[in-house]
């Protein structure tokens, strides 16, 4: 009986631990798509065409914006930088942040990429022909519209500010511009996907 006591204690502790550890799947903070939507596109990067399906990383975070956007776009891109940097290095290798310009008239692929890389050197910036951008925007349900037009180089762009999470070619998760700023919760969602 004396010999059995430590084992009983251990068993008791294990049982206690079993009941204390939360069970079940991760509860997502972002908006999870019940029917993940297959998505793909080819746009222009600084070194030529980039096809979404050929991006090496399995989780891609997409944000649509424009370079001449000093307030809204940097706020989200800085939030994505914080989330990316909070991931362990192993997870970072499997995540890619891509900025897609919805202002192809002003943002060349080089400018879009320089802009993205200013936030994090691993980020990628893409642009393309107005038709190609329109097509990608339609795929993701992104709205964009020139506003306060003063001339061919002087205008603002209203645009959907959602961050889209694509995993293995399928759109699986969305973060609103407010939600994306909760770094810890975004990181937990990404780690649950990986």
């Amino acid at each position: 009986m004396k010999k059995a006591l430590p084992f009983l204690l251990l068993l008791g502790l294990l049982l206690l631990a079993y009941f204390l550890v939360p069970k079940g799947g991760h509860s997502f903070y972002g908006t999870r798509l019940l029917n993940p939507k297959p998505v793909d596109f080819t746009l222009q990067g600084p070194k030529g065409p980039v096809r979404l399906a050929e991006v090496r990383e399995e989780v891609v975070l997409l944000f649509f914006g424009f370079v001449h956007c000093p307030d809204v776009c940097p706020t989200t891109l800085l939030a994505l930088k914080r989330a990316y940097e909070a991931l362990p290095p192993k997870a970072q290798e499997r995540v890619r942040v891509i900025f897609v310009s919805v202002d192809p008239d002003r943002d060349t692929p080089e400018i879009a990429d320089q802009y993205a890389k200013n936030f994090h050197p691993s980020f990628l910036g893409l642009s393309g022909s107005p038709e190609a951008i329109q097509e990608v925007a339609r795929t993701f349900g992104v709205y964009y519209q020139k506003a306060q037009y003063r001339g061919p180089k002087e205008y603002l762009v209203d645009h959907t500010a959602t961050t889209f999470v694509v995993q293995k070619g399928k759109l699986v998760l969305l973060f609103s511009p407010d939600k994306v700023e909760a770094t810890e919760k975004v990181v937990a969602d990404l780690q649950a996907l990986l």
Binding site: V72, G141, V142, Y143, A147, D158, T160, A161, T162, L174
Partner: peptide
Amino acid sequence: FHRDHREHRHGQEVLGMRP
């Protein structure tokens, strides 16, 4: 001077700014 402009389209938030 600008103020952010928010509206909802297709259930998602569209952001912009207005002078």
